[in-house]
Every structure is written in structure tokens, then in C-alpha cells.
């Protein structure tokens, strides 16, 4: 692998700020199974030995070129999520296609947080145009913004990190079409010398009138794990989920967010900002209620509000909020 300097030019007000100076090229997207196996082994060792996490983020971005969306997998994803399987991929499919890059980065020995047990707390996608099956993508992932933050309502602390993934067409400096920012939280992990975020605001949630919803099922979670490559065992194995502090298996956050977006259908257009904040995990099996609502003043970007749609998902039995999501039209 040869390192090279990460070129800037991202559109999001300089999202390469704090980005690594060196880029490692991978020959292809790695398989996710071995990455999880390695992470499981490390998690097992960590349970018997004091965790020896590094400090700071790796000064590396990972890049893979000539990535093509897989037609058969796209079909399976669309059928599962409730999207029309066409030439243009839903933004969540670009996320799952490029997700192995995130795993590869988080699976590195010098990554300071344990890959398993991290919670996906938020996701943001800027899509400039739809990614199509005939696009040859150059995808790059890096980590940024390692910060401490309070967890829950008590005085526990955790560490949060953002993983940025961008997809360009053709060349490393080609047309930027898609950029994702996934925010993960490692509960109970504290690293020295980190800035500490304020406690996130948690406005009280009272369930609105739903416009739709869906049921979650183990079979569906297994299918999402297969089609997304996100084989984190908390989604498919109750024992694993309990080991990481959940009451039982929970749905993939990006599965929930993608279903909510699918309900919106073609109104999202090709270019947009799609945000998702994940609240209480979605139990499997269970039911999810959804409300889609038109919004004129979505505040998803610094400097100005945009029209679009808000998507809220919750547990219709307990009234617990699962997801606040927004789709701001470009």
C-alpha cells in the first residue's frame, strides 16, 4: 500500500478539515465477515485484559477505486427496503456498499475505539446526484472529530467519532456524487485529552399520528445483514445483543432509516441532504410506527433552511422514539 495525500475539495464547507494526510489504497472492498471475526476476537481479548486502546485517530484514509454497485444486491436491497429497483441506487444502498471501508478503518489496530459495541447514533448523507449501476466509483473513508460526550442521563461518559465516506466518479478528484458521515458512540470508553461535548438535548417525545409503519422480524434482520454486509451480531443473535447491553436483537439503524426514506418515494428527487438521528434501538421482533410530514424549514446545513420532509419513527406500543430523520431537497 502506498500512502498519498488526501485531496480536499469536498463540498461540505471543507469536510476534509481534520482529515488524514495519508491515503492507503485497497485493491477492493474488503469482505465484512473476517473484519467482524477479527473484531470479535479483539472484543474477547478485551474482556479478559485491560483494553489497550490507542490515542487519537489513525492518520490514514482508506481508498478503493473502480467500485461498481452490484445489480443483484441492489435488487435484493430494494425489495427488502421497499424501494423501486431501478438504475439509480437509494442513498442507503451506497452506504451499505461502501460500509466495508468503514469497518476496515475501525478494524485497524491503531483505531482508538472498539468496533463492536459501538452505537450508530447519527447519519448524514449529502447526495449530489443518484449513484447508478454504471458508475465507476472511487470511495474514500476517514475518521474525524474524536470527542467525549455524556451518555444517557447519568454521569457516564463515552467517546464519539465520525466516519466520513465520499464517493467520486471515475477518479480520486472526479465528480463528487455522494458523501456520508456516520456518527458512532463507544459507551463507557474514555480517552485522555478529548474535548467534551455538551449533553445532547433530548426534547420530550409524544407520538404523533402515524402515516404508516412496518413490523420487524428476525428473518428480515438476517436478510438485511446479508444484503448490507453489516453482520454485527447484535442484529441477528440475541445472546450477542444481550452481551452488549440490549434486551434482545435490535434492527440495523440504517435499515430503519432507509425504510422511512423509502416511504417518501420519488418525492426525494436526486439531490438532497438526508439526516438520521437514532434514539431508542428498534427491538426485533416488533412494530414500528412512522410519520412522514412535509417541512418547509429543515435546518440540516449550516446557514439556511430548506424545504423537504421529516420522517419520525417510534414504537407504537411503548411510545419510545426510534428515529428522527429529514430529507432536505437540494
Amino acid at each position: 500500500m502506498s500512502g498519498e495525500t488526501l485531496d480536499g475539495g469536498a463540498f461540505d464547507g471543507g469536510s476534509t478539515a481534520g482529515a488524514p494526510t495519508r491515503v492507503d489504497h485497497l485493491a477492493a472492498l474488503p469482505a465484512t465477515g473476517p473484519l467482524y471475526a477479527g473484531a470479535l476476537a479483539r472484543a474477547g481479548r478485551a474482556m479478559v485484559a485491560t483494553a489497550s486502546v490507542g490515542e487519537g485517530l489513525p492518520d490514514r484514509a482508506l481508498r478503493v477505486a473502480d467500485v461498481h454497485l452490484d445489480r443483484a444486491r441492489l435488487d435484493a436491497y430494494c425489495r427488502l427496503i421497499g424501494e423501486t429497483a431501478g438504475e439509480a441506487a437509494p442513498p442507503g444502498f451506497v452506504h451499505v456498499t461502501l460500509f466495508p471501508l468503514q469497518l476496515a478503518l475501525m478494524g485497524r489496530a491503531d483505531f482508538p475505539l472498539p468496533m463492536l459495541g459501538m452505537v450508530h447514533v447519527a447519519n448524514r448523507v449529502e447526495q449530489l446526484r443518484a449513484v447508478r449501476t454504471d458508475d465507476a466509483l472511487v470511495a474514500t473513508t476517514w475518521a474525524r472529530d474524536l470527542v467525549g460526550r455524556p451518555v444517557g442521563s447519568g454521569d457516564r461518559l463515552g467517546t464519539q467519532v465520525e466516519l466520513v465516506t465520499e464517493a467520486r466518479v471515475g477518479r480520486p478528484d472526479g465528480e463528487l456524487v455522494w458523501q456520508g458521515v456516520s456518527t458512532y458512540l463507544a459507551k463507557g470508553v474514555q480517552l485522555p485529552d478529548l474535548a467534551l461535548l455538551d449533553r445532547p438535548e433530548r426534547p420530550a417525545f409524544s407520538p404523533p399520528v402515524p402515516t404508516g409503519g412496518w413490523t420487524t422480524a428476525k428473518l428480515t434482520s438476517r436478510e438485511y445483514a446479508t444484503v448490507s454486509g453489516d453482520r454485527n451480531p447484535i442484529h441477528t443473535h440475541a445472546l450477542a445483543a444481550r452481551a452488549f447491553g440490549f434486551r434482545g436483537t435490535i434492527a440495523h439503524g440504517m435499515d430503519t432509516a432507509a425504510r422511512a426514506l423509502a416511504a417518501l418515494g420519488p418525492l426525494r428527487g436526486e439531490a438532497f441532504t438526508w439526516t438520521a438521528e437514532f434514539a431508542a434501538p428498534v427491538p426485533v421482533p416488533g412494530r414500528v410506527a412512522l410519520r412522514l410530514e412535509r417541512a418547509e424549514d429543515l435546518d440540516v446545513t449550516a446557514g439556511g433552511v430548506r424545504p423537504g420532509w421529516s420522517m419520525t419513527a417510534w414504537d407504537p406500543r411503548r411510545g419510545a422514539l426510534h428515529l428522527r430523520s429529514a430529507l432536505a431537497l437540494a
Binding site: 399520528v209 402515524p210 413490523t215 416511504a263
Partner: peptide, 19 residues
């Protein structure tokens, strides 16, 4: 059930009744 909302007609009508 409605394929796009996954709600049965009865559940849909319950929402309409609220509205």
C-alpha cells in the same frame, strides 16, 4: 395491507377516524 405503509385498511381507517 397497503404495500407502501404496511398498514391494514382497518389501521388506516383508524387514523382517518382520528383526523
Amino acid at each position: 395491507n397497503e404495500p407502501r405503509t404496511h398498514l391494514s385498511m382497518g389501521e388506516h381507517q383508524a387514523l382517518t377516524n382520528l383526523q
